[in-house]
């Protein structure tokens, strides 16, 4: 079996929130304490991506999908867990030790307006990861040539290389962001909601471009999105997150044909659809995502789940492998199939 490009085991990321130490001071049992207020944004998430594979991470706002992405890209440091990129454990490396890892892993960001430095020329932006790798031994003509090549690959022309980001539209900026990620020829690109800020017609262009690049360079993607229909087009496998937990993983076809977790079902049926025939009677879920500061006991989804029963409030369901592939964290699906090798 080939080695996965990305292998994440039991990733946990918590943030301390709240303000300075003085806002947290409390008298507890006669002692003055400043307990840290902790949000568990990501709770023991495991995933792996094979070479050339596209794994989509799906969920609503606040489910921790972006945090997973940014922790793997080591913008945040993980609280615990292992992150292996191309077999190399990176979770404990510091920024300097991470530099060679950046050659394998790059990232595309959500906001095309904030993800490019407004004071840099386009050619400098796209070449930056490469320049960081090559210890500045590149001549400026090499840089220009490489930048123009990269820009051409994403559909921008050479005259545009000397311009600044504000002279481009949202879709063009996202192309620039893709060219930047491509500059070091990484094996894995983490794409954090790369099309959610774009108009529909532009969204299609960017998705097509990303799929072309995958075929051309053998890229793997970790594709973070809230939009299931976008995910359907690009993903090989899908992982659904809710409140920092992974609730279901499955191959694309399986997930869309037979979603098993009630939350996945709700996500699928809640999405508005242009095709009238496809509007299903909705698996109605009510309410909104509870605060991550104050997780419900047991299963996190039970407060909104139409199928919740007594056990859900007591015991947190584990993510268990299922017959026919994939895995689900739900008490309705927690019988391990007998034939399944453990």
């Amino acid at each position: 079996m080939t080695q996965p490009v990305l292998d994440v085991r039991n990733l946990v990321k918590s943030f301390t929130v709240g303000d300075g130490i003085f806002d947290r001071l409390r008298f507890t049992g006669g002692k003055l304490l400043a307990p840290p207020k902790v949000v568990n944004a990501v709770n023991s998430v495991s995933l792996s991506i094979a070479p050339g594979e596209v794994l989509a991470l799906v969920g609503e706002s606040g489910c921790g999908k972006s945090t997973v992405a940014k922790t793997i890209a080591r913008i945040h440091a993980p609280t615990s867990g292992e992150i292996r990129i191309d077999g190399k454990e990176v979770s404990c490396l510091n920024q300097k030790e991470l530099r060679p890892v950046r050659r394998e892993l790059q990232m595309i960001f959500q906001d095309p307006y904030a993800s490019l430095n407004p004071r840099q020329r386009i050619k400098d932006i796209v070449i930056e990861p490469l320049r960081a790798q090559s210890d500045r031994r590149m001549s400026s003509s090499d840089i220009d040539a490489e930048a123009i090549k990269l820009l051409a690959r994403v559909g921008l022309n050479a005259e545009q290389a000397n311009r600044y980001p504000h002279q481009f539209s949202g879709g063009q900026r996202q192309r620039i962001g893709i060219a930047r990620a491509l500059s070091v020829r990484p094996k894995l690109i983490i794409a954090d909601e790369p099309v959610s800020a774009l108009d529909v017609s532009i969204q299609a262009q960017i998705l097509n471009l990303m799929m072309d690049l995958r075929d051309e360079f053998g890229l793997s993607y970790l594709f973070v999105s809230h939009d299931l229909s976008v995910v359907h087009h690009i993903a090989d496998r899908v992982a659904v997150m809710y409140l920092g937990f992974m609730v279901e993983t499955a191959s694309r076809d399986q997930l869309f044909a037979t979603p098993r977790h009630p939350y996945t079902q709700a996500l699928l049926s809640a999405a508005p659809n242009v095709d009238k025939a496809l509007r299903k009677p909705q698996a109605e879920i009510t309410g909104e995502v509870p605060s991550a500061l104050n997780l419900p006991s047991g299963c996190c989804f039970r407060t909104r789940c139409p199928l919740a029963f007594a056990r859900c409030a007591v015991e947190r369901p584990a993510l268990l492998p299922q017959r026919g592939g994939g895995s689900v964290a739900c008490h309705l699906h927690d019988t391990v199939p007998e034939a399944f090798p453990t």
């Binding site: 529909v200 299609a204 229909s229 976008v230 087009h233």
Partner: peptide
Amino acid sequence: DSIPRITDRQRRLRQI
């Protein structure tokens, strides 16, 4: 055409 649809079998989206 450029709306991604869950029913589409083909992966490439038609784009403007």
